[in-house]
């Protein structure tokens, strides 16, 4: 179980660096933090999982999206 999640983490980490359009990178980062939250949860650390889910997937995504909508959308 944990091996599968670790492989997926590597895949999504590299994908979020690869995308040229910033919004897609933000979506990949949301899935990245979701998977790391699941990893913590499976390893019996639910408080870290709550903090990761709350900050990484909720508030950070909202802030990234709002800031991207107010600046340029493509990476140069």
């Amino acid at each position: 179980m944990t091996e599968v999640i670790l492989i997926l983490l590597v895949i999504f980490g590299t994908l979020s660096l690869q995308f040229k359009k910033l919004l897609n990178a933000v979506i990949c980062l949301a899935i990245f933090s979701l998977l790391s939250s699941l990893l913590f949860y499976y390893l019996h650390a639910p408080d870290v999982a709550i903090a990761e889910a709350a900050v990484g997937a909720g508030v950070a995504t909202v802030l990234f999206v709002v800031i991207i909508s107010k600046t340029r959308k493509e990476e140069k």
Partner: peptide, 12 residues
């Protein structure tokens, strides 16, 4: 597994 920090983020 809650706590002050996590609950505060959910409030926000």
């Amino acid at each position: 597994p809650g706590g002050g920090f996590q609950g505060g983020v959910v409030l926000a």
